[in-house]
Design a binder for these strands. Structure first.
Lengths: 348, 348
DNA sequence: ATGAAAGCGCTAACAA
DNA sequence: TTGTTAGCGCTTTCAT
């Protein structure tokens, strides 16, 4: 039930615990013969260092924390992969926590990760507009900051210049603008915007890009064409079914993400509406499902894994910052791009 | 850069650090007025407990570790979700580590998680047949065990009764048997088995079930119909393309998992072979892609998330074990079932 | 090159 | 109900 400690190893090797520590950490010269005796003792005893004692005596725990909605959702999974990989590169272990969409759980998790003394806490995904909630996050950002850690906002807007966070953004609005403009260029005038929780920053930015494209082309945004709701497949499916029977007039659908697009495509298939001949469909995110749909989905690509990597680089201060003038607030922004596949054609 | 400690809080509240500990942990009676003063001090100072000091002084760190190949792979992601959720239920934080298929990394990660004094280390997915490697895993299982932790094998075979692990299995062979038998019942005689690393326990079990079904129906297993390789989409695609041009005779394909099946379907589509009219296809795992394929994929369902939950329950000794006679080796086994969708029809 | 000893921040007896 | 006091296992000066 109890493991060997560094003192046990020291006794067995006939040295002091300080020496054992030195051979383990290779940070001070140790005579070869001593080292060998110590190493032998370590294997004989099956000694495994206690990371907590280490973290307590030394400074860092060498872990980073990441908070996401759901591991199974590819949007989060890809970012998590980037975080995990980059963390590994820098010798950090990765603690992954899921909120299942709950604000309260998210705040509690930031605290938990703070307790663990994670070198960084990475908060992933869009945030709901809510001042009280934002204030709570801000408070935690400050606590983390004074403790020498960093809160990184990944894929959500900054909390303001007075809150010590780092942020990794992607050009959300720009992607929505580009793909809407692509649709317009193909001749579409009545484009349905579907899905995304209405108060989520992600949805808001995508909708803003969509509207800007419409305006730029002098097209009025008809309110009956905008149906926010959620990011799940079911929403896309149900909404399209309803709108179809309702007889709403449109020639293209901009699904707020690829998952919604999958539902959209299934509803269209069931209704016997052919894509892209009768209706064009585009999505957002470019997660794997986009390539499995038939026709394959034209969508907006986000460098998800890269965002995860950036988040840990930023937090760990790996590059970019000059030591003497590191600003409290740092933002990295990655681009989005549209990837054209087979789900769009000119309207009939 | 440095945070308030329990001593700071104690001084500020004019009590001893023991009292502060008591109000934090709510495990001993504290006078209301004292409690209030302490709580005030805590907020004023922005005190956040140090989990390492706690782990060192108390016993458990309240974390579980999970080791998987890749967060993005749905097979692993669903199990990880189960682990994360069940861990949360039991007040544990979850450390997720990825091996990217490397044995060495896997072993190193077990050690790392041991150093972190995780209450459980969950090793997920099939294992390659390799005695030296198995011995290394066994050694670590013992180390963990003597340290009071548990190594749980999730979706891979036991290391033998003398190795102190817990294992969560699924009826891998049975699922393969059932779906092959289903294909035979539909009239198929020449079934291609495609994919899966040949030395991986998962592949071996699936192939075994496949063969048993064939034998039971008195069908000879032609070696030209078995093509193991890997679990990725690309393999399914390339192999089917090659076999098709080669002119091999078969009426159905059993893809070793759904990902391979996705590649298979794409190759068939490109070759103008209709599914299921000309060729039937089945997969394994029942991950989301199975429902996006057209036709939707008939496959074997594994209760992935449930396996993850079982793994942590088993490790934490939540249920099932009688205290006084807990065996060193414990195995839980979950069933698999075939889910019939549209990718199988009788051969022409 | 090596050892002695003082913490790191907390919990858990044991006292009071 | 509260305080005192050992540790928990390790790192890190400071000596030697």
């Amino acid at each position: 039930m109890s493991s060997a400690t560094i003192a046990d190893v020291a006794k067995r090797a006939g040295v002091s615990s300080a020496t054992v520590s030195r051979v383990i950490n290779r940070n001070y010269p140790v005579a070869t013969s001593t080292r060998e005796r110590v190493e032998a003792a370590i294997t004989e005893l099956g000694y495994v260092a206690n990371a907590h004692a280490r973290a307590l005596a030394g400074s860092t725990n060498r872990t980073v924390g990441i908070i996401i909605n759901d591991v199974v959702d590819p949007f989060y999974a890809y970012i998590a992969r980037g975080v995990e990989r980059e963390a590994t590169v820098h010798g950090r272990l990765c603690m992954v926590c899921c909120t299942q969409g709950s604000h309260e759980k998210e705040l509690a998790l930031i605290d938990l990760l703070h307790e663990q003394r994670a070198d960084a806490v990475i908060l992933v995904g869009g945030a709901h507009e809510d001042r009280a909630y934002a204030a709570e996050v801000g408070r935690r950002a400050r606590a983390l900051h004074t403790a020498g850690s960093t809160l990184v906002l990944c894929g959500r807007p900054s909390l303001g210049d007075d809150v010590p966070t780092k942020v990794v953004e992607y050009d959300n609005e720009g992607g929505a603008f580009a793909i809407t403009d692509y649709l317009i260029t193909q001749g579409h005038r009545r484009i349905l915007f579907l899905g995304g929780p209405p108060s989520l920053s992600t949805t808001i930015a995508r909708l803003a890009g969509h509207r800007r494209a419409l305006e730029m082309r002098g097209l009025a945004q008809a309110k009956e064409l905008v149906h926010t709701g959620s990011f799940n497949r079911r929403f896309g499916y149900d909404k399209v079914r309803a709108l179809l029977t309702e007889g709403l007039d449109f020639t293209a659908i901009f699904a707020a993400n690829d998952t919604v697009a999958a539902g959209v495509m299934q509803a269209l298939e069931l209704a016997g509406v052919s894509v892209p001949e009768e209706i064009s469909v585009v999505g957002y995110d470019d997660v794997p499902v986009a390539q499995e749909l038939r026709p394959q989905l034209t969508t907006v690509r986000i460098p998800l894994e890269e965002m995860g990597r950036q988040a840990v680089r930023l937090a760990l201060g790996v590059a970019g910052e000059s030591d003497y003038l590191a600003p409290v607030q740092t933002t990295t922004r990655v681009g989005t791009s549209i990837v054209v596949r087979g789900s769009v054609a000119p309207p009939r």
